Amino acid sequence: MTDLQMTLFGAGGVFIAGVFSYNKWQEHKAKKSVERAFSNDHDDVLMRSGAGASAPAAPAAARHEPSFEAGDGASAGAGAGAAAQPCADPLDAPARSADMASPAAELATSLVDPLIDCLLPLALEAPVRGDKILPVLQTLRLVGNKPVHYIGLHVNGDWEPITHGGVYTQLQGGVQMASRTTALNELEYSELVTRLRGVADDIGAEPAIPDMIEVMAEARTLHRFVAGHDAQLGVNLHTNGAPWAISTLIGALEKQGFDLRPDGRYVMPDGDGAFLFSLSTNVTLAEETTARLTLLLDVPCVAPARDGFGAMVACARSLVGRLDATIVDDSNQALSDAALAEIAGQVLEFYQEMEAADIPAGSTRALRLFS
């Protein structure tokens, strides 16, 4: 080996080590950012007792949650609007405690959620009927691919989704700040502000618009968390002999408990109207045979109590006997019981991370973010 080759090999080693170190530093920095942003001590506005209670003091670097407090999120600048009027707590009724939350109040909390939504208070000039304002609110239900929801403070003291026949003294809107694909961006937020002011004028309300810079920072942080936990696990079955006929497979999959959806997907029902995992034949509808099946688990969308990965592996093992197949990885290498057990441990750690971020897998929050 010549001196030049030795020099090039040495330089290459230094470069690779530098890239590895830089990537680890970036990973550590991103993890710390998410831990700070999604710590468990956030102030859940919709569940706080005492209307108008001031938010606890927080360090300058802490996540700033838009809230119902007067003036919160209404600082001067791009997108700033009138100061927010204090909104009553959804459960702030004299005889009501957190343990007595009505179904309507719980649904309201899931629709307008301070952890994943940018809150948009709408101060009303006078009580309004749901029948009157619903047609107007329906005109602003989506910005980009981010849903916009509304709840109202009913005259009975409950926050609830706005319905026909209800009478409301205060309104609260919320736009989801991130989805599986993107974060709420400046263009979408500007469109939201413009359209929201038009809606507010039509229903006789005054909107409090949070500062755009703060909202964009929160949206990007939330999307980083979503992107970092957008995990799908696949387990493959490969035939030990000739390819399977699709017509034969249908019967075997139905006996295994799979449902065939209108979109052509095979799914394993969870018993509550949703499904645990899906199955792909890895071929187009025009094909008559396949040599490989893939079971796929959308990890953040299945609650740990469902044990989606365990159920998927059990299903794969059952199909091995029915179809004379082998469980393999994406490289067609057989997956041992030890390898599957190791993956199960990683899934458990994943669930613990989501729980620590206050976005448990399979929860309403998770389903909204990862839909």
Rank of each mutant, 00 (worst) to 15 (best):
L297E: 00
T169I: 09
L142Y: 03
P269I: 04
K29F: 07
L367K: 14
P121T: 01
P103G: 01
A334F: 09
L335I: 02
E106I: 13
T294S: 15
C315M: 15
N240S: 05
S179D: 15
D230P: 04
H42P: 01
E288T: 13
L107S: 12
D259G: 08
G77W: 02
Y189I: 06
S371K: 12
A98F: 09
G251R: 02
A53R: 15
S54W: 11
I209V: 07
Q333Y: 13
C118W: 00
L171Y: 04
P147C: 11
K31G: 12
A334Y: 10
A361Y: 01
K255T: 08
A334M: 13
D41F: 07
L340M: 12
P56H: 08
N23E: 13
T182C: 04
D41A: 10
T7W: 09
A227N: 11
A126M: 11
A361K: 01
R365D: 04
L8Y: 08
F225T: 04
Q5K: 08
Q172I: 12
L260T: 10
G257V: 07
N156A: 05
I16Q: 14
R365G: 07
D358H: 12
A83K: 01
S21W: 14
V143Q: 00
A316C: 06
A361M: 00
G173A: 02
